[in-house]
Write a protein that binds this DNA or RNA. Structure first.
Lengths: 121, 121
DNA sequence: CTGAATCCAAGAAGATACTG
DNA sequence: CAGTATCTTCTTGGATTCAG
């Protein structure tokens, strides 16, 4: 049934557009990077990713789950304990996410300086 | 004057957050990839990036310009002719953008399949 | 052709309150 | 602790129109 239609992000109707959105999403990137060293609990994620609301955290985790990036692990305990773990696909993506993070960190100062320049001019 | 405050995307108040948004932006990525082989005219970009509105094209190009990713080249002709060209920083980013594009294309099918699975379950 | 400005609808995201 | 639901706010982005 699968026609092997190749992905083409330049086509506005290609589903890969959504994927591009997902992997470019700020929260996705930060969350996935947090999960690189191993499973992390919900509350810990909340604390690590500064400023994320509980809603956006859950929502992003669900999207990552739906697309096969993370696995949700629920322990039958009281109070509840839930962890999220990268899948193989998620690990693959986390490398990219980390690259993005590093790129930003590496060029941060240069870009800020250019911005100030542009403002002054 | 510069204190060399390191970038920290996990801090909601760090300007690197905005950068992360910019380099993760769908339009940014597609546009920058279009510019990889050399300067491109506005109209050509419009046609290559399927579904982008004139507003978003201009807006994204301005942001890329402000942050030092692209240069705007305006020729004194009638009718007007404008080209956009990657700066050195832009070229650096374009490598990352291309990686993102390629990652999506490479994992496209696997992710779609997982989505269907999740739906069926 | 390039692009700026306006208007407006749709969607994103925060805050809050509540459940298991 | 983890997650859902609702409400409200406001940003995003498209369509349109006008100008150089």
């Amino acid at each position: 049934m699968n026609m092997f239609i190749p992905a083409n992000p330049y086509d506005m109707n290609c589903p890969s557009r959504d994927l591009l959105d997902l992997i470019g999403d700020k929260w996705s990137i930060l969350i996935v990077c947090c999960l690189q060293q191993g499973p992390v609990r919900t509350g810990a994620l909340m604390r690590q990713v500064g400023g994320i609301s509980q809603k956006m955290l859950t929502q992003t985790l669900r999207e990552l789950e739906t697309n096969g990036f993370v696995e949700r692990i629920s322990y039958p305990e009281v109070p509840p304990r839930v962890e999220y773990r990268l899948t193989e696909l998620g690990i693959s993506f986390s490398a990219l996410a980390r690259t993005m993070e590093q790129w930003v960190i590496a060029h941060y100062e240069q870009i800020l300086l250019h911005r100030d320049q542009a403002q002054g001019a």
